[in-house]
């Protein structure tokens, strides 16, 4: 199945005098895992916000499946299949894990009158199946009925990812999903990302765990000071002199 491609063209966003994102072109291809690396403050999260509509770009355009979505609200984009997770998990803390997933699963379509009359959305058995499968694949079944407000950060990230997956997205933007996870969990995450991409979903992955990024992605962008400084296959970007310089200044790049 062919899903939508997400592209940003000439995106820029300034905060006062600071240019957080500076004329960035980026493509998230369907069925591929695309990585985005860069030091703290490089503008990765800001770029995410521009792509998902949380922030409006000062200039530039965003296309989803060839359609200009620059002026769409974030929720409309989400209903078109563009879904993100946040650097700080954005869960509904008074609800259980299961209910969080349900919100993800049942809002692609709107049915207010039905809701007011107490009618349930169609295909709810399918919804349940998707949710159960997602929970299993992230090893969350045990905490399905736990209120998310009480969970540790690592679990929160996984639940947020699960919630995003339950929307059955076309393009998935993940902001540091592996931070706070232990080695085993990271491994499971990496397998899951490959599998989800295998189903045709385009994934954009931001993470400071460069090992994870380089091992799981097909294409990597490196961002410094709001600009894309390198792009290409993981191997090529790893060898890029600019990238090496930036990361060497911070510590060894594996």
């Amino acid at each position: 199945m062919s899903r939508a491609e997400l592209t940003g063209r000439g995106l820029a966003r300034r905060y006062g005098g600071l240019t957080a994102v500076d004329n960035v072109d980026i493509t998230v291809a369907p069925g591929k895992v695309t990585g985005l690396i860069g030091p703290n403050g490089a503008g990765k999260s800001t770029l995410f916000s521009l792509l998902t509509g949380v922030e409006k770009p000062d200039s530039g355009k965003v296309f989803l499946g060839g359609r200009n979505i620059t002026r769409m609200h974030p929720d409309v984009r989400a209903r078109h299949g563009l879904v993100q997770t946040f650097q700080v998990p954005s869960l509904f803390t008074s609800m259980t894990v299961m209910d969080n997933l349900l919100v993800g699963a049942e809002n692609r379509r709107r049915d207010y009158i039905g809701g007011l009359l107490g009618r349930t959305p169609h295909g709810s058995t399918r919804t349940r199946r998707v949710m159960t499968r997602t929970l299993e694949s992230l090893n969350l079944t045990g905490i399905a009925d736990t209120t998310t407000g009480t969970l540790p950060t690592g679990a929160l990230r996984l639940v947020e990812l699960a919630r995003a997956l339950c929307t059955r997205p076309d393009v998935l933007l993940l902001d540091e999903p592996a931070s706070g996870l232990d080695g085993q969990e990271t491994e499971r995450l990496s397998g899951l990302l490959r599998r989800v991409a295998g189903e045709g979903v385009g994934i954009l992955l931001v993470d400071h765990d460069v090992e994870l990024v380089f091992s799981v992605t097909d294409q990597v962008y490196a961002m410094v000071g709001g600009r894309i400084v390198a792009e290409g296959t993981p191997a090529a970007v790893r060898e890029d002199p600019t990238v090496r310089a930036v990361y060497l200044a911070q510590g060894p790049l594996a």
Partner: peptide, 21 residues
């Protein structure tokens, strides 16, 4: 039901709610 969950989601985390549609 669905509306209640959605409303609660908006109350809990508006950005998060928008991000999943």
């Amino acid at each position: 039901g669905r509306l209640g969950r959605a409303l609660l989601a908006v109350r809990d985390h508006p950005e998060g709610a928008a991000a999943v549609g």
